[in-house]
């Protein structure tokens, strides 16, 4: 009896991780051409709802996953930061595409060289633009990060 009770108290983190893992409401923050590829990810063929990650909430308060899709310019950076701050914890961030990961081909004064200069990023998706399969792989990687609790954002 007592042992069973102890078992359940230790399982709390695992239970919460289980719930968070299978209920990721994305907030697509689309700034550039990668948005086209994001649309194909969100389409019927790649079906991210299989992972429980297909109900976009466009209010930052209600979303769990900030997907920054495309180039972040220095002018756009404070806006991304504000959206990130507005999100309620627990929250996660995916940098979608080469520009969001590192600035990509834009090695100039106007572009932020990587989203992780302003907010912590959990999963990076390389590619210009990334294939939809890569995005699905990123969602699965994020799920395993949520499960093991190594995310920087929680």
């Amino acid at each position: 009896m007592m042992k069973g009770f102890e078992y359940f108290t230790t399982q709390k983190d695992e239970l919460l991780a289980w719930a968070r893992k299978f209920s990721i409401f994305p907030y697509p923050f689309v700034t550039a051409c990668c948005g086209m590829e994001f649309m194909s990810v969100a389409s019927t063929l790649y079906d991210t709802d299989r992972f429980g990650a297909a109900l976009p909430r466009f209010s930052p308060r209600q979303s769990d996953l900030l997907m920054v899709v495309g180039t972040v310019s220095h002018k756009q950076a404070p806006i991304v930061k504000k959206i990130y701050d507005q999100m309620c914890s627990p929250k996660w961030v995916i940098a979608f595409g080469a520009c969001a990961v590192s600035g990509g081909v834009y090695q100039n004064y106007a572009t932020l060289k990587g989203l992780d200069k302003i907010i912590p990023v959990d999963v990076y998706i390389p590619g210009c633009p990334p294939r939809p399969e890569t995005v699905i792989d990123a969602i699965i990687k994020l799920q395993s990060k949520i499960e093991t609790g190594v995310s920087k954002n929680v």
Binding site: A19, R20, F22, S23, G52
Partner: peptide, 14 residues
């Protein structure tokens, strides 16, 4: 169980 996961996640959100 996705419905359960959704409910539990929302309860544990800020």
């Amino acid at each position: 169980f996705h419905a359960m996961a959704d409910g539990l996640k929302m309860m544990s959100k800020e």
